[in-house]
Structures are given as C-alpha cells and as structure tokens.
Write a protein that binds this DNA or RNA. Structure first.
Length: 595
RNA sequence: GGUCCGGUAGCUCAGCUGGAUAGAGCAACAGCCUUCUAAGCUGUGGGUCUCGGGUUCGAAUCCCGACCGGAUCACCA
C-alpha cells in the first residue's frame, strides 16, 4: 500500500466525518510538499472548500487536526498554509517502507498481464549504414520494450528490414561498375559502410550524367529519367523481381555484408531483436492480402488496373495499394508484414516505433488492417517520435550531413576514455581491459541518456561541434553515483543486520527524502509504460541520484558511530543502487561497478 | 490550403490529468578534496513561460484567435 493510497483513504474518511462529504479518489489531490514548507506530502483542500462552506485555511487546519488525532501513528505533524495541508509522515513509516523495498528483488516490476506486445523498431534500409536518426529509433524501441516488460507485458522485439527496391539496386549497380570486386575483407571496411559508399557513388555518377544530358539540351525531368544509370538500375530491379539468378546472387552477397555490419552496430548499441522480418518476403503476402480485400469488396480496382482503398468515411482520402503494373507499394508491404506477424504470434498489441513523419501512413495502416480483420489493427500504436536535427537542419544521407552511428559511438567511448585518465587514484590497479570496459559503458551511457532524456515526441537538436557532456544531468552522473555506492558497499564488510533497524525510531531529513524517492519508483515505471516515455525514467533516475549525492555529502555512512544509523544508511545506499541499476537497465544503459 | 506537432533562462531541456515564489544541466562567476570516489557538493547572476483574449478561488498547464518553426497530404520508402 503506497502512502498516496493511505492518505487518499484518510482524506475521504476525514471529510466524511467532518463535513459529511462523499468524495471520490479523483477529488483527493496530493502532491509532494514543496521544499520551502515542512512536511512530506500535501493535500490540496480547495476541492472541498465549497461543500464544507469554510475558508480554505480553516478546512486545511481541521482536516489536519482530524488526521493527527485519528491517525497519529502515521501523521506525526501537520501545518496548514492557505488551502494546502502539509503532512509530516512518521519516521517509522519510512523505515518500514525501506525494509519493504529491500525485501523485493524486482522492486518496481508490475504483475504479469499475460498479454503479448510486439514492438517493431529500427527498420533499416540495406543500402546505407545506420545514422543518428536510427540511433534514436533503436534506443527508444529497445527501451520501450524493456519498459513494457517491466509493466507486465510479454514483449517480442521485431525488426523489419527494407531489403528490396530501387535504392538497393543503386548500390549494387555502382558496385558492379566501379567496385573492382571490392569486399569488406579486401578493403577492411564494415559491410554496411562499404555498401553505403557505393550508394553515394551512384548518386555522384548519376548527377554527372544528368548534368551532361541537361547541357545537351534536355530538361531536368527528362534528363533524370533518361540518365543511363537510372535506366540500368530500373532494369536491375525488374530482373530482381523476375528472380534473375545473377541479380539475386549479387543481392544476397551484398546483403550479407550489410547484415554483418548492422549486427556489429546493434550489438555495440546493446539492442537486439527476437524476430526479424524482411520486406523481400513480406511484400508478396501483402499483395495477396490486398487481393482478398478486393474480393471482399473493401477495395476497388480502377480502369488502369491499380487497386485503391477509399477512406473518405474515415475522413481521409483514397489510398493506393497496388500500382497499375501490379507491383506493391509501402502500404502493401506493411499489410503483408502484419499478416505474417499475426500468423507467428498471438499479438494483443502492436507497437510501431517509427518517426513522426509517417503519422499519416500509420493512421491509414490502422484503418486498413482493421478492415482486413486484424484484431490488433484498430488499436495499433504508432510510437511516433521526433526527428534529430542538426544546427543547419535535417540530416540527409546524400548530402553527407549524416552523423554516422558507428563514428558517434567511437567518439563517445574515446572521450570517456580520455576523461577517465584523470581518475588515476580511483581507477588505479585495474587492467587496461577493465578500463576500456568502463569507458565503453560510460561513453555509451552518456550517448543513450542524452538521447533518451528528451521527450520522445519532440524533435531534438544535436550539435556535432559540441561534445556530449559527462557532467551534470547526464548518464555518467548517474553511473558515477552508482559506482560510488558500490565502492562504499565493497568497503562495508557486510550489510549489518536489519534487526538493528527495529530499534531505530527517527531518521534524518535527507534519509527520508531518499526513501520517499525510492517509493516513487513503481509509479514511475507505470507512467513510463503508459506514456511510452523513457524520458520519465531518465528524470526519475536523475532526481534519485541527486538526492543520494546530497545525502552522501551531508551524512557519513561507514564512519557513522551509531550502529543503527549506519545500518540504515547502508541499507538505503544498497537500495538506491538497486533502483538506479533497474531504472537504467530499462533505458538500456549499463552501470560500471567503478569509474 | 487541410491535418498534426512544437514555441519555457544565452544554449540544451524538465514541468503541461489547472495549485504555493516556474526548475535542472551547460556556459559565466565565487567557494569546498589529510574524512566513505571532486564525472561530486554549495552559492551568485540569468525569465513578459511567443503574443492577445477567455474559463476560475487559482493558468506555463485548459479553451479560442493570431504569429513563428517543423512534419505531412506521391503509382517514394
């Protein structure tokens, strides 16, 4: 039973007894007492003022007095300021709370729902390496999956790889023409970077051709269409669709290079998938699903042979599902993917982690899946996150204004390594290998926290010229707090018996604040799940770390002469470490034992 | 033009189911290591919460209207 629940009930009893008011839980407004007033939890009495027909100050005072009298074991003191009743909760209550938290190994984990949630994230194209935009996607997707797991869902993490289409053919063609048989082995390049380089190369050569054609008198549109490279790429796509063995073999070889590169990046980023789907296999399913919808009268065919859905009664437009030549579009593929997924898993809730630029697409997909009879269609969640912007605007692959994921991680880890060199006294005696492992955790922790702490729905700015901080409201700050606690716990010979706590009746203000913060953790996990917001957990972890650092600064743990107090502080430190670790795990951030 | 999202300190962001004097970090300045890890702690300065109306005991928060920025409305994905 949480303090909020207890005080809510107490309030209802009080206003019933004093004013004969029957109030609902929603009318009981509780908040943390502001620092400038004495107390731990504050009841806002304004909602009762009218019915009680008394001044706010009076109501607050009367309710406070009633509580202090009828629940003296809980409400130690109170003060009424205008319409705010500030309650000081008994120290014994907080000590009990701490012991209860300590007893729970998975504190914060919500009960199982026995419901399956599938979370799709990442969704890379196979023609270029991952960049900062993907990093935000991956970190959000992974974290949301962890958060929903903590909220009792069975979660299946999935990835849909866009491995077909004209863009892949561009890389393949450029490699054939200009590659001289270069491979990841011969060049030493990661496979995804190698392919990405040829994608860029295609664009360079293509632009040359367009320019030449335009100089020869063609208008831009014609030039773009008639450039030989584009013609060849399109021919290659047709061959691919026709299962031409040579094209398919090349495609498979190059895909393998890319996947090996992606795997390396994913692993480094610390994200993973339970099941991977490929558009090259799902797009055909989509076609047949559309044909079924056509037969059922949900869709219609135009004279030119193209197939459409009419969404006017949903307030939207008409939407193309199959081109006049019978080939599929993006939407068709997503329908096919949904079908396969539904065959593979008993999905109760489907979550798509995809940028906010695709809101319209998912609105339409939801309607179409629903019409096609997928139970998860109507309720699908498009977890729509904002773009990562650079100081001069959006990232564009072809213009070379992308921040590469691998480079960024390298930079973060090497920065962390550099900073740790000043820490010779705390990190002395560790091996080079351990030092590198710490730098890896800290560098990635800084990056992940930097990205996850901002509200996912909002666009965020990344300035490559300014390095990501390791001080202040950052991942390393929280990791550092954890490492500090671990250091203390290592020095404490053993956690002293909890029994000594039973004789402890009073606690310090900073201890109380910490326990109160720990008590907030389960509600924070729920909120992060309800809102699909890792940022909420970041804010919580930061606040907890701040509270601990303040406590640590003011009060000694190991040097405290009173054994009872020492035991309490050790227990407190241990549980702060536990909760920090748990919260950061839900963000996909690893904690170093020392740093 | 329609729809959606955003506008809070010099910068990056919290706060938004209405509550007390709007918070952090960075940057700037001033302090704190013979005491459990200074990636820490303490302090100073910095605000017309874009603007204008409305709702009410009370508005950064809710409603309406402007202005500014972004996204989207493809036989691209």
């Amino acid at each position: 039973m949480t303090l909020e629940n207890i005080v809510t009930q107490l309030t209802k009893d009080a206003v019933k007894a004093l004013y004969n008011i029957d109030c609902t839980d929603a009318q009981v407004q509780l908040q943390k007492t502001r620092a400038e007033f004495e107390g731990n939890i504050t009841l806002v009495v304004f909602p009762f003022v009218k019915m009680a027909r008394k001044a706010p100050q009076m109501v607050a005072a009367e309710v406070g007095e009633w509580m202090a009298t009828n629940a003296a074991h809980l409400v130690a003191k109170y003060n009424a300021v205008q319409g705010f009743l500030n309650l000081s909760i008994a120290d014994s209550f907080w000590i009990e709370q701490l012991q209860a938290i300590d007893a729970e190994a998975e504190y914060g984990k919500q009960p199982d729902r026995n419901q399956l949630m599938m979370v799709e994230y990442s969704s890379p194209n196979t023609n270029k390496p991952l960049h900062l935009g993907h990093v935000r996607n991956n970190l959000l997707g992974y974290s949301v999956a962890k958060i929903q797991e903590a909220n009792g869902w069975n979660v299946v993490k999935t990835n849909i790889v866009n491995d077909r289409g004209i863009h892949i053919c561009k890389s393949m063609l450029a490699w054939l023409k200009f590659g001289n048989g270069e491979t990841p082995e011969t060049s030493g390049k990661k496979g995804d970077h190698l392919i990405g380089d040829y994608y860029v190369r295609f664009d360079v050569e293509y632009k040359k051709q367009v320019k030449e054609l335009m100089e020869a008198g063609k208008d831009e549109e014609t030039a773009k269409r008639e450039a030989p490279l584009m013609q060849e790429a399109q021919a290659m796509l047709r061959k691919w669709e026709a299962n031409d063995p040579e094209v398919r073999a090349l495609w498979e070889k190059m895909n393998e290079w890319v996947y090996a590169g992606f795997d390396e990046t994913y692993q480094r980023m610390g994200v993973s998938f339970d099941k991977i789907y490929y558009e090259s296999t799902t797009y055909l399913e989509g076609k047949s699903e559309v044909e079924k919808g056509l037969a059922a009268g949900e869709f219609y065919r135009r004279e030119d042979g193209s197939v459409w859905a009419n969404l006017e009664k949903d307030g939207l437009d008409e939407k193309l599902l199959l081109r006049s030549d019978g080939t599929s579009v993006y939407m068709t593929q997503d329908i096919g993917t949904a079908k396969l997924r539904y065959q593979d898993y008993p999905i109760n809730k489907m979550v798509y982690v995809v940028g906010n630029e695709q809101e319209y697409h998912f609105k339409v997909l939801s309607i179409l899946l629903d019409r096609l009879g997928f139970p998860f269609g109507k309720e699908l969640v498009h977890f729509s996150y904002g773009m990562v912007e650079l100081p001069n605007g959006k990232m564009k692959s072809r213009e070379g204004t992308v921040v590469d994921a691998d480079d960024l991680m390298d930079k973060m880890v090497s920065d962390a390594k550099e900073i740790s060199k000043d820490k010779v006294n705390t990190l002395q005696g560790i091996t080079e290998e351990e030092a590198n492992e710490i730098a890896r955790k800290v560098g990635l922790g800084a990056l992940k926290y930097f990205i996850l702490k901002v509200d996912p729905r909002k666009n965020m700015l990344f300035n490559p010229a300014e390095s990501i901080d390791f001080n202040g409201n950052t991942g390393p700050f929280i990791q550092y707090t954890y490492a500090r606690i671990k250091s203390v716990l290592r020095k404490a010979e053993s956690l002293e018996s909890l029994k000594t706590l039973e004789t402890l009746k009073t606690i310090e203000e900073k201890e109380l604040a910490l326990i109160q913060r720990l008590c907030d953790y389960p509600a924070t996990v729920r909120a992060a799940g309800d809102e699909f917001s890792p940022a909420i957990l970041c804010n919580y972890a930061y606040a907890l770390a701040c509270d601990f650092n303040s406590f640590y600064h003011d009060l000694s743990i190991l040097n405290e002469p009173d054994a009872h107090k020492r035991a309490l502080r050790l227990l407190l430190a241990k549980n702060v470490a536990k909760v920090l670790n748990a919260a950061m795990a839900l963000l996909g951030i690893e904690m170093p034992e020392r740093m």
